[in-house]
Amino acid sequence: MKKLHVSTTVNGDPAEFVCTPDESLLDALRNRLGLTGAKEGCGTGDCGACSVTVNGRLVCSCLVLAAEAEGAEIATIEGMAEQDRLHPLQRAFIDHAALQCGVCTPGILVAAKSLLAKNPEPTDEEVRYWLAGNLCRCTGYDKIIRAVQSAAAEMRGA
């Protein structure tokens, strides 16, 4: 399969890679660019562990072709903290013990950030429905919801 050359922007920095035409954005991020924060839990859009944003829109990177990244702006978990300052959501997840194994955590953080950008004061139910596509098998979601709400409150106050 003839490879394609893709020029894109990842976490604000220019990035280039070659990929096969059938390669997913997730595989390109992980295997071509070394950004292994997004995880493959299913490869079929059912678990959300590979969540990233493409041009500001929350997506499963396993359901995006790498070739579609041409000219796009991609944001991943690796770009969430600003230098040595964690994002309030990242801090809240640690403070509220909202992770156990942590493999779903990058996807949930990316998704939660996207929610709070759109809705800074969600109800618990809105958080739960927004995150319904992010499976977590360890926590039962309780502490995740609390952590998102805590970060949301902090961000509204800031």
Partner: peptide, 16 residues
């Protein structure tokens, strides 16, 4: 938890 920062920044190294 000591592994918290690694896990919220995507740095923690899992099997794959």
């Amino acid at each position: 938890r000591p592994d918290g920062v690694d896990k919220v920044t995507g740095r923690a190294m899992y099997g794959a």
